[in-house]
Write a protein that binds this DNA or RNA. Structure first.
Lengths: 218, 218
DNA sequence: GAAGTCAGTGAACAAGTGTTATCCGAAACG
DNA sequence: CGTTTCGGATAACACTTGTTCACTGACTTC
């Protein structure tokens, strides 16, 4: 075994990371399906053949980027869900965290938004799987709240998916605004909070007798 | 002038349409930014140079596709908004129309979902402009309803954007499911209706005194 | 019916592309 | 300290790419 030594392995992961970083840089104005292997290695300052030492495919590079972009978010989501009790506070924290994540990891978020429905199947399914895990975690968090009494698990999961999709759509909105435009930033924040509140209120009144009757009617 | 005669103009628009159709066909597994000019003209059976007689750019072809995909939807949206009074019926019709549009215009919808955040700026902004117009129309429709009394115009527009984004996200969900899977189709339909009902209920209770206090607090 | 318009052609241009086989040199190992 | 491992370089492979130019021939116009 040689997993402890690693001056070589360190250098290898170093250029692997350089490939990922350069890829992210080039993907700011481009889709993954149009990112060339030579273009990428040229940006890194490495021979084209070197690419194959790290990834068999461009799609594989994309999947690695998905991990980098979304992998670290699971712990954050779980933390927010368990730490926060008050509904309004949870909304505010969620929007604030989304905003912060976009400003701090703009290229990653752009990559996710761009490739979520992009042309590379492997990447698309990797993103979908990650977002599904998010929805599962949110559903679990919602289930632990007293406000979820009487909710079927399926419906709760639909609600969780709505929250996740809303998070993605808010991130995309932040993305489209210029990074240094505080007015636009505030406008998007306000809109996101408003929408989350509407959804939250709808959730609370969902099991009202009159509503329940109307819902089960169709 | 020669806009009445047009045996030539007819032939021209014919191959122009062939370019658009072939483009849509090739974009099923690809992004616009990676669609080659030669690849496209080869599919149509036309020389590469002929492309320039119809579009200066690939981006221009993309913008034309946006028009083709979303242009005809405005009248549909306006019709549904004005014809339907009952809230539940409006939800059902909206979801049904979305589902029908995806099954009937699958390649167009896929194109929109794929290029909404894609790498071609002109196309991205064209889609955004079209969706903004949708939101304006929805906002106008909502404003005409009695349930919107007491809503500020800005908040109403945010709500309209939520509806439009929800429509797009539902269309994308239908897209990801196999076209001939009735179970998946029903599952997505059910989820879309549930989410729309939650939003609708939240909207109705938005101006409740207790809610209003909490909302204006922050 | 002659003159003009113009969608589409065919050829050439200079780059660009992914992928492979072979070799080099420094790190790892016994 | 010799041997093996392996990340990276080099060079060549056979294509594909966008764009331009002069040209042809059917339609339009007068």
């Amino acid at each position: 075994m040689s997993h402890t030594s690693g001056v070589r392995q360190a250098r290898k992961q170093q250029t692997r990371q350089a490939l990922l970083d350069a890829g992210l840089r080039l993907l700011e104005h481009q889709n993954l399906s149009s990112l060339g292997l030579r273009e990428l290695t040229r940006e890194v300052g490495v021979s084209p053949a070197a690419f194959y030492r790290h990834f068999p495919d461009m799609a594989d590079l994309g999947v690695a980027l998905v991990d980098e972009a979304l992998g670290s978010l699971h712990t954050v989501i779980r933390a927010v869900l368990t730490e926060t009790a008050d509904a309004d506070e949870l909304i505010d924290r969620t929007v604030a965290i989304t905003a912060a994540y976009v400003t701090e990891h703009r290229p990653h978020v752009r990559f996710i938004a761009r490739e979520r429905h992009g042309g590379v199947t492997a990447v698309r399914t990797a993103i979908a799987a990650e977002l599904d895990r998010f929805a599962d975690e949110v559903a679990a968090g919602l289930g632990a709240q007293p406000a979820s009494e009487g909710w079927p698990a399926d419906d709760l999961h639909v609600l969780a998916e709505l929250y996740v999709d809303h998070m993605v759509m808010t991130a995309a909105a932040f993305l489209e605004a210029p990074p240094d435009d505080p007015a636009a930033h505030d406008r998007i924040t306000h809109a996101a909070r408003l929408r989350l509140r509407i959804i939250s209120i709808g959730r609370l009144h969902w099991l009202d007798p009159a509503v329940r009757q109307a819902a089960t009617r169709g």
